[in-house]
Amino acid sequence: MHNVMKSFREVLSNASNILILTGSGISAESGVPTFRGAGGFWRKYQAQSLATPEAFAANPSLVWEFYEYRRQLVSKVKPNKAHEAVAEFQKRKIAEGKNVSIVTQNIDGLHQKAGAQDVLELHGSLYKTRCTKCHNIAINENIPICPALAGKGSPDPNIMSSDIPREELPRCEIEDCGALLRPDIIWFGEQLDENVLQQAFDIIASCDACLVIGTSAIVYPAAMFAPQVARRNVPVAEFNIEETPATGQMQYHFQGPCTTTVTEALAP
């Protein structure tokens, strides 16, 4: 393993356009739930069933309670050593005149908290809202996001939805609008923003080294990014707690906690 790590570190030292693609695994070590698999429940709901436009249309109060819980939780966690290593590596390489692009499937903002710059968020952000009428996107880090959601969002399975009236849920502040806001997050059944996707494809087409950190390689379109890079014979390294469906296509695979493997790979 030591020789493999040494080989990859040499690849990184010679690369000038590096892509770092991250998923929920990097934030799980900070205590952010992945909401995948058997533990992916909030109250009695499977989390994925709440992250849909249909769920929001049927019960915006319930969906906003779920996201208020997630905002509260993430606001209390800190970036871990892997987030910090990525941010420090990016800063160091930029100082050398090189480029490090961070593309993430995460919505928690922990890369930015660690000091990373120009993070491309494929799936949106917990700290942004989108108007359901005028489609304005705004940053909102208030907790609670509105008075009616104060103290709401407990994951206790015995708690029922508060059924907060729509007019008391987050509203657009654009003059003459005032419509209902939703989280600016790509939900199941929705397409990624075309501009964001194009930026990702441009990065994929130009990178000469790639790290895939803490992603399951099953959520599309991000799942196809690393294999696309590998098909160009560009070195790709996967960092994950376990093997994924894409592991066989990667030149390098480092198994174990991201806080250990990523920190070693990106150390000066």
Rank of each mutant, 00 (worst) to 15 (best):
A150R: 15
D202R: 14
P183I: 04
P165I: 11
L149A: 07
E173C: 01
P157E: 04
S154K: 09
G151H: 03
D184M: 04
L180A: 07
A205G: 15
C134L: 08
L197S: 07
S125M: 09
E168L: 13
L120F: 05
I185E: 05
D156T: 07
F201M: 11
D184Q: 03
A217V: 07
A205D: 15
D193F: 03
A179C: 08
C210V: 05
I143M: 13
H123E: 04
L192P: 05
I145W: 06
S125Y: 05
T132V: 12
S154Q: 04
A138W: 03
D163W: 13
Q191I: 02
L181T: 01
A223R: 10
T215L: 11
C172H: 08
A217Q: 04
G189C: 12
A223E: 03
E190G: 06
A205H: 14
N136G: 08
S216P: 10
C134H: 13
G214C: 06
D118V: 11
L181Y: 04
L120S: 00
P183A: 03
I185Y: 03
D184T: 02
L169I: 08
T215E: 01
E121H: 13
G214K: 01
L192F: 10
S162G: 14
E141I: 02
E167W: 06
N158E: 14
Q117A: 14
P165N: 06
A209M: 09
A138V: 15
P157W: 08
M160V: 07
N142F: 05
G189A: 04
E173I: 13
L197D: 06
L211N: 00
D156E: 05
E121M: 12
C177T: 01
A209G: 08
I203N: 01
G151N: 08
D118T: 08
K152E: 08
